[in-house]
Amino acid sequence: MTDIDLSDLVANMLSAAGDSLKDKWPESKDYAESEFKKIGETIIFISQEVLAGRMSEEKTKLHLEMQKNSSKMVLLTLEGLGLLAVEAAINAALKVVSDTVNSAIGFALL
């Protein structure tokens, strides 16, 4: 088994998440970076325990499955934050339409 480089691992996770989220990425990056770093450190810890013969294969699989599930939960939060950002943008645009129409007709129609 080769050594895992934490910074490479976190950078690759961030890059994959960033590609998926595109323009909604900047505001979520700090949260993602912090969580992926913790997950990366944990994966390295597990691999070190395996290499030292202190963790069985059966347990390792379960631990890695749990870290994978936690990563999915982080990604789902990022997706939700992205949706909330899109929602806010659409609602801001709708408000402009409403304000413009109300102002043009002189009373609050919308």
Partner: peptide, 16 residues
């Protein structure tokens, strides 16, 4: 050595 990864998995998940 099971505790640190377990704690991380649950803390990361509930935080998310």
């Amino acid at each position: 050595n099971d505790i640190p990864p377990l704690r991380n998995a649950f803390n990361t998940g509930t935080t998310a």
